[in-house]
Design a binder for these strands. Sequence first.
RNA 1: GGACAGGUGGCCGAGUGGUUAAAGGCAGCAGACUGUAAAUCUGCCCGCGCAAGCGUACGCUAGUUCGAAUCUAGCCCUGUCCA
Length: 409
Amino acid sequence: MTEYTSTLLRLLEERGYIHQLTDAEGLDKLANESVVPGYIGFDATAPSLHVGSLVQIMMLRRLQQAGHKPVVLMGGGTTRIGDPTGRDESRKMLSDQTIEDNIASIRTVFSRLLTFGDGPTDAVMVNNHDWLGKLGYIELLQEVGTHFTVNRMLTFDSVKLRLEREQPMTFLEFNYMILQGYDFRHLCKTAAVRLQMGGSDQWGNIINGIELTRRKDGVEVFGLTTPLLTTADGKKMGKSAAGAVWLNEDALPAYDFWQYWRNTDDRDVGKFLRLFTDLPLDEIARLESLEGSEINAAKVVLANEVTKLVRGEDAAKTAEATASTTFAGGGLGQDLPTLDIAEADISIVDALIGLGFAASRGEAKRLVAGGGARVDGSAVTDEAYRIVLEGKEIRVSSGKKKHGILRSA
RNA sequence: GGACAGGUGGCCGAGUGGUUAAAGGCAGCAGACUGUAAAUCUGCCCGCGCAAGCGUACGCUAGUUCGAAUCUAGCCCUGUCCA
């Protein structure tokens, strides 16, 4: 398995990115001979990607590190269709303006992790709406319609599962795989792209593009998928207490982002370090071999490194400082959520809501009744309790991990 | 267009006239134990209210009834089969 000779495949293999590969030998050879432009497609359904997409983004980074050219494909066109893969329900339609805005917002993350420019190995970003949007229906049918059989399309998991579960699949969505295949061929022709990467659920879509390119142009292109990333307890990555773990700063504060990684399951530490940081492998091996509570040190390193890559050095430093004063010192870190109070005092319930720890008064009261609310570290069980500020900063906590600051305005 | 089946809380899924803010499970939150981990156990889990209680909620609308998620009619949506 690990007999690769190219820098690219060795790098991807040893850091755990490879799940399936269409033609290992062929790609290995190609990567040794020339710069390989490779792309990954991203949906523009939200203004930010979340950690579920981070593997893919990191893979583009590895591609560049290995001396190749990353192509970021924004699905401005395909997002209008909606990828049915792994979904039981049709995606709601987004307006053109929303999609454009989302793409602009998502772009900021890539600029941190990839080097963009005009050079041979500089990253570029393209939008498939630029070509899919212009495509005529008859033209599309002629171009690709002859190369796809419905028989085969029905066997793809994305379609088959939906049918088996008796969930509706619209004709619109049914066309998604065709358009994605079209993308691959288009990029191969116009940008010499030879490789498409993606999550393991994208295997079928990727294969379509490969076959289409081979049949239309006789060019061999390659596909590579990453393993489906789950946390050790079997959950999909990317969800946390507050919801999705967004990559964009304005969608999730750096401190929360840092905390997400800090709370990694013991068993995932090594895997995540390899995938999501640039640390050398021997260093990672040392960190992941830490036993018992010592592994917490490795989690701090993980949180620092990932935050540094995605949010920048300053964000990582501040988040770590906040965490260490808050948890170890019992003090107040500057990165905690803060609530400015104009009055002399505030009820515990309002404070919890104001800090975002409870969505309603009832929820806040339940939290208090359950013994989960703390003021300056000591539990408050009286829901009528009022916090008196007296000009000081006061720490209010929900449980052991969520802390916030009250401050006199 | 026709026949049949179905649309319940974030998700899955019971429930066929009052005892149903709606069983059970999952997810989530909190407590205990720990290491800001996992596993386990316990509590909570629509909103407002200190409370009694009130308001909303079982696709939509209009009815029947003292009383409806449960019955009736129309409509919308989905699936399967037929045209």
